[in-house]
Design a protein around this nucleic acid. Sequence first.
RNA 1: AGAGAGAUGGCAGAGUGGUCGAUUGCGGCGGUCUUGAAAACCGUUGACUGUUAAAGGUCCGGGGGUUCGAAUCCCUCUCUCUCUGCCA
Length: 425
Amino acid sequence: MLQIQSLRDETDRIIKGLEKKNVANAAEQVQNAIRIDSERREIQQSLNRIQEELNRLSGNIGGLMKEGKKEEAEALRQKVAGMKVEMKELEEKSSASEEALYQAMVVLPNVAHDSVPKGKTPEENEVVESWGEAKDMADWALPHWDLITKYDIIDFENGNKVTGAGFPFYKGKGAKLQRALINFFLDEADKAGYFEMQPPILINKDSGYGTGQLPDKDGQMYHAQDDGLFLIPTAEVPITNYFRDTIIKESELPKMCVGYTPCFRREAGSWGAHVRGLNRLHQFDKVEIVQIAHPDQSYAILETMRKYVQGLLEKLELPYRVLRLCGGDMSVTSALTYDMEVYSAAQKRWLEVSSVSNFETYQANRLKLRAKSEETKKTYLLHTLNGSALALPRIVAALLENNQTETGIKIPAVLQKYTGFDTIG
RNA sequence: AGAGAGAUGGCAGAGUGGUCGAUUGCGGCGGUCUUGAAAACCGUUGACUGUUAAAGGUCCGGGGGUUCGAAUCCCUCUCUCUCUGCCA
């Protein structure tokens, strides 16, 4: 959630940033929130004055009682009881205006960073970098959904039977490849200074709210209703929420964490021909990096995070490009997002394998994730960032497709010590 | 899952209706002393809101209630601990 303070202080910048996110009537919405807020503060102030008076008189009653002046105390008590009606009214007004402000604020997405290109569709994303050769493949080259059947390493049929669509079994060398990738990603993150965590994969409502999945995107998460818990869509949720309601020492910044988890997404209404095979699943594995940063450092850190992810793709020898997402393709909570896409020659398309974002204070505001300044002793909101490093299924798809020969699939050199084999076939 | 106890500031731990936002200890920070450090002593040390700054207001697990007044009484939810049961 945005901070009302920044709507007041930087109205124009906020409106511009929201317009880039294609918010309809951004100026009106912002002005409306500011208006509600100033009404809210007025009500708050009258309420505070009444409370002050009431506190004072109540104290007086106590004093009179002690001195044994019963009649005076009784008279005062009746006067105060009358004031409570007025206070009750103000309290109701106050909470109504708080609710109105919340409603006005919660619908606003994060403000796009200056560098975010305008645009509505993925076609308007900006390619900022690319690496490797996106070459064509021979006629005999197969898409991964045929390769996994040919080598019997991933089994959708039995996943269908046991659970349902989008819940495959990984088998034999397919399972080993998954395990190898997870370990490779975790080891690399460790070397880069990330602190490894194994978070819970069920989260409560407060956590879903903290990182922005709730209140409105609960349809994307699996819900364990009896217990009020949700299966995580990404490790971002538990790891970022680990820092919820905390005040971090400036000397401990930035916090760098990495975690491997399965991820669960209902993906309601997003199925079609282009999501065959591993391109979209209900359950998949991902290694996620999260950083908590000082506001002055977050954009430099965002760059190091994306370079880190690019390094992983290079070690895996996968040709990729980096996109700076346009306002219309970014998530609600993000201020700037880079997507990493790997080229799949056999599918002749780019596959998104990682998304690295800076959320600035949008999540931190809900999380109450703050630091305390050494100098001014004041608390301030931190910036949260995260990125996939990396999501497994599309990496597997790209590895299978790009490294296939007529007789088998070659395992990239860096992975061989993890898999224990150099070919699937 | 059953029975009981409990939830207070970074931590420990007082406080059962009236200057309690909260005694005290530890820790942290500043200072005195010291060549330096330790010890000792003195001071300081929660968050949110509000204001130019103040004043003021809110917060003692969450929510609701009683009362002129609640950390303190009542209801409810959540969580923790101990014992019993069960079990990777």
